[in-house]
Computed example of a mutant assay.
Amino acid sequence: MYDITLFTPQDMAKCSLVLRHLGRNTASMEASSQKIVNYIYQHFCDSQTGENSCALVRLFKTHPYGELEDSLQQSARCLMNGHPPAADMKCWTLLAAAGTEPQWNSRHTAAKNTAIPLVSTQLVAQMPAISEIIRQFGLDIPTCLGIEPERFLQLEPAVLNIFHVPEAKGSPFIPEQDSLILPYQIKSVLGFGGLLRSGSLFAVVMFLKVKIPQSTAEMFKSLAVSVKKSLSAYDEQNVFDNPRNANNSVMNNNVIESQLLDFQVANLIQLLEFSEQKMLRQAARFQRTIDKLQREIANRKKKEEAFKASQEPFTGIVNIPQDNIVPFEENQGI
């Protein structure tokens, strides 16, 4: 288990290793996603009490409307006021959830709107939670909606980031204040994710009952790499659970294993590059610290030398032999 208030790089490495392998032996991206949110919900706990640190964990993915199952398409249409949806319209889709309440442990019952249509750049900009996730991930709305595919191709390997709201209560980026934040005493919200090769954006969002600083949140960028690895094998096929996927899971096992190996190689390379970049940033910070200390030491030496030089005129006075000192008395006598 991991105490997020005491989360260390060693904890991050252990958690990352587990998440990278949760995509194995599953029939769909949805099944892998459910494993991921279950693991996070169950294993992030208070080290003293054993209480879950998260009230709720969700995993979202943008997905074309035309490829959604019927129930998700219906959810999207309910928000479109009768306007006909385009088949390639992206929808902010809930793939998996795990949490305190029983209904939170299935994507079918975890939220009122399980597929939110991302109709246009203007409308997405008015959705505070989604637009802020996009912004904090270092993206722009047109890229996420597929309006600028050439820009996406340049960004996809590099975009793995976090979404952090240190103070959830009263935050304009968390609209579920009355239904979630206040009744369940959510202190911070932390998300992490990035881009998949298909052009989809994925995000794991943790609603935490403890407050965490930015330094802790930054470590979850590494977990984004591992979650991407688990989801990648099903990025363009078998996204949602259905009986056919379950029945064919054994038949497709060799194909899936082959795909997983291919994605594993690609993602391990990406993880290595990500780690190298992180090491370079840490080395740069370390070098800046050393340079600062060296400047401070040099300045201190200069001040000491200047102080010594200023004291030289007084050194001769202090060292005058006692025989050469003549005392004067108050009555002006010698």
Rank of each mutant, 00 (worst) to 15 (best):
G146H: 09
E257R: 09
L145M: 11
S28C: 14
R151M: 11
Q185W: 03
L293Q: 09
C91E: 06
P157Q: 05
L160C: 12
M80Q: 15
G194R: 04
H63S: 05
I256E: 02
D323C: 04
M80Y: 08
E304H: 13
P84T: 08
S47G: 10
T49P: 05
E150C: 09
Q311V: 07
A224P: 04
Q10I: 01
I181E: 02
E304D: 15
L268G: 05
L160N: 13
P183H: 10
N254I: 14
F163R: 00
A13D: 04
T93E: 09
I40C: 00
D46N: 13
E276M: 12
K211E: 13
V205K: 00
F163E: 00
F314I: 13
H21K: 09
S28I: 05
V210Y: 10
M127G: 00
L280I: 10
I181L: 08
T114P: 00
A125Q: 14
L68A: 09
Q311T: 13
D235T: 08
A115F: 05
K209G: 09
S222Q: 13
A86Q: 15
M80K: 08
Y65G: 07
T216C: 03
I269K: 10
E167K: 11
R135H: 13
V326P: 06
S200R: 09
N331A: 01
T114D: 03
I36G: 00
T100L: 14
R135D: 11
S171K: 04
N299C: 10
N113P: 00
A283L: 13
C54K: 03
P327D: 10
G66S: 04
E329S: 14
K301E: 14
T216W: 04
S75Y: 05
K302E: 10
W92G: 02
S71Q: 13
N81P: 00
A246M: 12
A233N: 02
N299Q: 12
L153C: 11
T216E: 01
M127C: 04
V255G: 03
K278A: 15
V210G: 06
E148F: 11
Y39A: 05
E304Q: 15
Q177V: 11
H63F: 12
N242W: 08
S131E: 08
A55I: 02
C91A: 07
W104C: 05
T49H: 07
I256W: 03
Q73V: 00
E273S: 08
H63V: 09
D70C: 03
L223T: 06
L68N: 08
D178R: 15
I36F: 01
A98D: 13
A125M: 10
K278N: 12
N242G: 09
P9L: 04
T114L: 08
L139W: 08
A284I: 05
H21W: 04
V37R: 01
P313R: 08
E167R: 12
L19M: 06
I141A: 10
Q74N: 14
I134D: 04
S222L: 12
P149R: 05
G193F: 01
R285W: 07
K112C: 12
G193M: 03
N247E: 13
T216V: 11
R281S: 14
R135F: 15
K228Y: 06
E312L: 14
G82F: 14
S230C: 10
E132Y: 07
Q34S: 06
L95Q: 00
